[in-house]
Every structure is written in C-alpha cells, then in structure tokens.
Amino acid sequence: MRWQGVSEFVAVAEEGSFTAAADKLELSTAQVSRQISQLESRLGVKLLYRTTRTVTITQEGSVFYQHCRAVLDGLQHAENEVLNLQSKPQGKIKLTATVTYGEQVILPLINQFVHDYPDVEVEAYLTNKRVDIIEEGYDLAIRIGDLKDSTMMARKLSRRSNYVCASSDYINKFGAPHTLSELANHNCLLGTLDYWRFNVGDKEKSIKVSGSLRYNSGFGLAQAALQGIGIVQLPDYYTRTYLDSGQLVPLLEPFRIPEEGIWAVYPQNRFMSPKLRVLIDHFVANIE
C-alpha cells in the first residue's frame, strides 16, 4: 500500500500531464489519477494542483518528489545490478568434494576456471564426510556413487571404476586370487571400511576382508600395493596410471562392480546463477 501511486505521481510531476504520464506508464489516465488521489489521501496532503489545462506540483509535492525520485533511482539501480549478476558469471561459489578426487581433478579445473572468470570467487572444502549442502551453505557438492538425496538437483560429470589390484611382486610371491573366497588367504589392505564390493550375478555383494594395513588414504594404500605389501580395492583415479604402466595388475575382473557416476549436486532452484551453470559446464567439458 505504501508504494501505490508513487510511480504515477513521479511520472506526472516529470511529464507535467496526467495523459503523458499514463502513456509513459502504459496505464489509463483514470488509473493514474485514481492512484495519485489515493496516495494524497494516505499522506493527508495535496501533492498536485489540477486544472483543466495544467498540473502544478505543490510545495509538499516537490519535497515528496525529490525523495521518491531518489527511491525509484535506487530501485532501478538495484534491478540493474541483479540483472547484471544474472547476465555474466560473478560472485562467490562455495563447494565441497572428496579429498583425493578434489585434489586431483576438481581443484585444477577450478584454477583454470577462476583464471578465465576473474569476477568469480571459489571457496572449496575437501572432505570425505558427507556434508549437508543446505545446512552448511554450499552451492555445489561433487558426489561419487549412488545419490540418496532426492531433493537435490544433479548433473553427471563422469564415472569411476573400482579396481582390485596388486603388484607383480606380490602376485609372484603369493599368487593371484581367482574367486572371492580366496581373498581370505591374502593380505587385503583396508581403507575406512571392513569390506570390499563386488558384482555377483548382477547383484552387488560385500565381502569382509582383512590385512596388515588400514589407511584412510587411498594414495597411501596405492603406494603400499606398489611396494608389494598386499592387495587393494581402489577407484581408478588412484590406480589408473599404475594399471596403464603395468606397475599394478587388475584382479578378480569378472567380479568388478559396474561404473559409478560422479555428480555435481546442487539445491533445487528455478533460476540457476550464471556462475554456477558455467562452472558445472566447465567440469562437464573437462572431466574424462
């Protein structure tokens, strides 16, 4: 209610005519006149003197006009700023990713992104804990595997494979397992879980394993496997280079679980900001 009639009054004060003001605002002359009359009633003052030929602003109207003009200018500036934000990538993005994947893949791409878009500021927090995107104020999370939160939007960036592998030295000394039951006879190097996942008859099955090492570091486990200490199950971004070079040998391939998705997950929002859309596009274009 407080804003009703303000734009109409400013237009009449500037145009000097109800008809011209109505044309400028694309309203009827009667509607402009009615809105200003209601505004004067709310204020309890006369803003305009009307005759059949002229419209003159009162002293009170002149004071009110100066303040209203400043307010409308401020609103226009605010609208322009918002539209500008929507037209090009700028502002802050807060995201999270798992530690190793973030270090090896996501952070290098962010470095390239902020170089190309200097008006964007990125804050990245790497953790293997599953954070609450909404509660902790993240714009984006990089998630691997099955997505459980149906309230989020998601875009697939890539996929990963999990490999069971060991060095040739280990295999030469202890042999290679050919069935899942044979893992009980091997030194299986553990991460944070007590089991490994396999595909058995098109269904996923968890097999409990044990060994002489437990690290919460995939990099550390890969290095232990390279030294012939035991067998590991790790995602391909830990092992790809070593598998390609032959330093590690894949094992139990018939039981390898299907590839898992790597996702950009973000809160539902009807209007995605340009900065977030362009960053996700950048990930999609550059992640294998």
Score class of each variant (00 low, 15 high):
V209H: 10
L189P: 04
L189M: 02
D244A: 11
Y238H: 05
Y215E: 10
L189K: 07
L221F: 07
Q233N: 06
A264Y: 00
Y242T: 07
F219Q: 01
S206D: 15
R240A: 08
I229H: 06
W196T: 10
N199L: 15
V209P: 14
Q233W: 03
T192C: 08
G228W: 03
L234C: 11
I262N: 05
G261F: 01
L221E: 12
R240N: 09
N199Q: 14
A222H: 13
G191F: 08
Q247E: 12
L221N: 03
L248S: 02
R240K: 00
R256M: 15
N216I: 12
C188H: 06
P250N: 09
I207M: 09
Y266G: 14
Y215I: 08
I207N: 08
I257W: 06
Q227F: 07
L193T: 12
D194H: 14
N199R: 05
P258M: 15
L243S: 07
E259H: 05
F198R: 07
N216V: 09
L252H: 10
S210M: 00
Y242W: 01
F255I: 08
D202Q: 14
E204F: 06
C188Q: 10
L248I: 10
G246C: 13
P235M: 10
V200S: 12
I257C: 10
Y238F: 10
T239S: 09
K203E: 15
Q227N: 14
